[in-house]
């Protein structure tokens, strides 16, 4: 299994450490399309969404379209915070570049400026009985999600964790805590994808695809 972290900007090193702590052996940092070759799962870290839009939108390297192609062919993608914004179909009030793979509408900086950034804990059934530590840093919120999106967790402001097929998103930062359960959950998604892919070799079954309700990606 080869896992990757998008390493253009943000806390990609922290995500790599978490994947490593979950037992992942091969972790690559992705800065261009070629780095995605042979990758079975991609994490998009926290960072600034306008910066990532600029770095992927204004380039001759096909990294943007390669991520979309691979995700539509079933490769699991997990986005935290900026990664969630980058995955979203719609960003309230902004037309900035994004992958537009997930059928969600997000609000940037939903909690306000840094003095409203916070940590708390919340029970998330999909992650087990023990409550999970949530860290929000100028975080976004999901204000609406399509019928094909499974909502895993919400706080007063809105949805903070959800899954749509091979796509996983959190508004909070598990990579800043010691709790590896979200990353382990994602690695399981990658395992299921690889199993499906190997069994598919013997059949003509259509794989789970991302963004099936979406027309075009919102490249700026």
């Amino acid at each position: 299994m080869r896992l990757a972290v998008l390493a253009l900007q943000g806390d990609f090193a922290e995500h790599a450490e978490m994947l490593h702590a979950c037992g992942a052996e091969e972790i690559v940092f992705v800065r261009r399309a070629a780095d995605l070759e042979g990758v079975d799962g991609l994490v998009i870290p926290g960072g600034e969404s306008t910066t990532i839009a600029k770095l992927t939108g204004n380039t001759t390297d096909p990294i943007f379209d390669t991520i979309i192609d691979k995700a539509k062919n079933g490769m699991p993608v997990y986005g935290t915070c900026m990664g969630l914004i980058f995955l979203a179909r719609e960003i309230e009030g902004y037309s900035q570049g994004r992958l537009a793979l997930m059928n969600i509408k997000v609000r940037r900086n939903a909690f306000g400026s840094q003095k409203f950034s916070r940590e708390e804990s919340l029970s998330i059934p999909e992650l087990g009985a023990e409550s999970f530590p949530l860290v929000f840093i100028r975080g976004p919120i999901i204000i609406s999600a399509g019928a094909d999106v499974d909502v895993f967790a919400s706080v007063a402001e809105g949805i903070v964790m959800c899954r749509q097929g091979n796509l996983l998103a959190t508004a909070f930062h598990p990579e800043l805590t010691e709790d590896t359960r979200v990353h382990a959950f994602f690695i399981n998604m990658v395992k299921e994808y690889l199993q499906e892919k190997s069994s598919k070799k013997d059949s003509t079954e259509v794989p789970v695809t991302a963004g099936r309700t979406l027309a075009t990606a919102g490249r700026s």
Binding site: G10, D11, F12, G46, E48, K115, S117, E119, H173
Partner: peptide
């Protein structure tokens, strides 16, 4: 949320972490 805490060292150190490579 009653257990939410703002301004902790973790929360303060996290903002610069999001700015890395920027």
């Amino acid at each position: 949320n009653s257990n939410a805490k703002t301004g902790t060292l973790l929360v303060k150190k996290a903002l610069p972490q999001m700015l890395k490579s920027g």
